[in-house]
Design a protein around this nucleic acid. Structure first.
Lengths: 195, 195
DNA sequence: GTCTATACCGCGATAGAC
DNA sequence: GTCTATCGCGGTATAGAC
């Protein structure tokens, strides 16, 4: 493994554990076993290295969600349900979401993260639209709102689990999201509104 | 205002803006106009000051939610709906939730925050239980899951808004949560007067 | 109680040898 | 390309005068 790759891999791991701001070049050099000169040879400085690591993390997550939400096999709704129920290490936090309020999240780091979440929200909305077309969900379903609350719910599950130290915050949250999807299904279509 | 209070108020403001780890004693002294000696006279160090500020922030939020969820006037479900639709400055983040992955969130800071969220989740669950008893929600409602996904959804809305720079992430999320509550209502329940 | 002066250390980066 | 040596700066805290 080249020094450049070692630096990126170590930075990715440290960013997941402590965030960008709290990850120092010294810690990265320690973790990677690379000398200081290599860092500043391959990158202009810490911000550039952090940006490269963030882009790689975003690519990793993108690949994982693609594997879960792509393909033609299960129904659109089943894919969304699978995303909600995916295995998550609740206490470690989302590799990207945990950086939302990290002071080290400058432009270079922020861009790939924003792109990942925008794309995830778009993909889920499309799947929900397909589920409506396929008759899996009621016609009246607000697919944008449902897709957003799913992504937000998962991120908030990570936040609550970390804050309380209790991973059940995540499982309770995803159970609530499944209730939302269940009640949106056509067999349980919303009752007529009185008015 | 005493020096001690000035220090706590300035620290609260800076913690909201940058988090605990990225708030230095120097910045606090600058913001408060207090001398360095006063800080270390009233507090053993930065961790103790941060803990006092976190406790004060938690008390502020507790008072705000008490005002919204307490009293006997509106129905239990209407209170929960009001919490979901409360005014929020999405891009600034939740004063407490944004600290979930802050490396400076040590035991002294973490405890009052965890207590606030545990209590909020408990209160919402109770209100939802009352709503079931009152016939506002279906008997089969998983009140723990719904309460948790509401708290998590709001926190995740903050996260997504910050990550994408778009406050609509919060409004889309709360709309999704209202759909969840709407679909959990019983057909015979009186509808809330707002929306 | 509050102030200024001082100290120590690690962060982030540069210089220049090999 | 990689290494070690060095630098300036700010974070965090202590000392001691007033």
């Amino acid at each position: 493994m080249t020094a450049r790759d070692l630096l990126i891999e170590s930075t990715k791991r440290l960013i997941w554990e402590r965030g960008v701001n709290a990850t120092s070049p010294g810690a990265i050099l320690n973790a990677s076993g690379v000398g200081q000169g290599s860092l500043y040879h391959h990158f202009s400085g810490k911000p550039a290295l952090a940006a490269a690591a963030a882009a790689s993390l975003a690519a990793d997550l993108q690949a994982e969600t693609d594997r879960m939400l792509g393909g033609d096999e299960p129904s659109p709704l089943a894919k969304v349900r699978a995303y909600v129920d995916a295995d998550r290490d609740a206490l470690r936090g989302c590799r990207l979401g945990r950086l939302a309020f990290d002071p080290g999240r400058d432009g270079g780091v922020a861009a790939p993260i924003a792109a990942y979440f925008t794309e995830l929200q778009r993909t889920l909305t499309q799947l929900l639209d397909q589920a409506v077309t396929a008759g899996e969900l009621a016609d009246s379903t607000d697919t944008t709102a449902v897709a957003t609350v799913i992504v937000a719910g998962v991120q908030g599950g990570f936040v609550l689990a970390a804050l309380t130290g209790d991973p059940r915050a995540m499982t309770d949250t995803t159970r609530g999201l499944q209730v939302l999807l269940q009640n949106a299904m056509t067999s349980h279509a919303p009752r007529p509104r009185n008015q």
